[in-house]
């Protein structure tokens, strides 16, 4: 079987990422996201979930790709792995949300129109999510995501070692993934 140049490029980036190449990983995630978004919007339509939820789903899928990237075998093509993760998480996420979604079609149309303007990139209330993280985790997440600092800079700013920042960041991402899941459940 032949794999596309795109798949090979993605796999190359992911291989570097696993070894710790932050930039390659950033390229990989940025390249994958538009595809995830298109898929999430299509599925939201299909499941009758408001399109505004698509971006939440995208973020949940990104977190799953991230937390499960150790299950990809670098000797194998990345396409099938990625599709399986995305399909599984997409269905799971929409099923959880879908259960309580019961919006009349006019509202969906209205949401869709609103979506076009805002591009739906900020569905989740950042402040709300951050507040639910524990202390060093919250500062680290804020520093890296909102203020655009790297790990080293964050470590200096918070007077922590780089290792400690890395560990706390990893835990924070796990907590975020759990928060997404519990958030969707609370709404049921």
């Amino acid at each position: 079987m032949k794999y596309s140049a795109r798949d090979q490029e993605w796999a190359e980036w992911m291989r570097s990422a696993i070894k710790g190449d932050t930039q390659a990983y950033h390229r990989f995630l940025s390249a994958v996201t538009p595809h995830l978004r298109a898929m999430a919007r299509r599925r939201c339509d299909q499941f009758g979930a408001p399109a505004s939820e698509a971006e939440d789903v995208v973020q949940e899928v990104l977190l799953a790709v991230h937390l499960k990237r150790g299950t990809w075998d670098p000797d194998r093509p990345i396409g099938p792995w990625l599709s399986a993760i995305v399909r599984n998480k997409l269905i799971d996420s929409l099923r959880r949300r879908g259960r309580h979604v019961n919006v009349p079609i006019e509202d969906v149309i209205a949401t869709l129109e609103a979506e076009e303007q805002s591009d739906g990139l900020d569905r989740l209330d950042a402040q709300h999510m951050l507040e639910r993280l524990k202390d060093p985790q919250r500062d680290i997440v804020r520093s890296i995501s909102l203020e655009g600092a790297g790990v080293r800079e964050t470590a200096e700013r918070l007077k922590m070692s780089e290792g400690a920042v890395r560990v706390a960041l990893h835990r924070a991402l796990k907590s975020l993934a759990a928060l997404y899941r519990s958030d969707a459940r609370e709404d049921e």
């Binding site: 995630l29 977190l63 997440v141 990893h170 991402l173």
Partner: peptide, 15 residues
């Protein structure tokens, strides 16, 4: 959180 911010966050946890 914006998706781009989340990506930056994930990228820092690459290894």
């Amino acid at each position: 959180m914006k998706t781009n911010d989340l990506i930056s966050l994930l990228a820092e946890d690459a290894p």
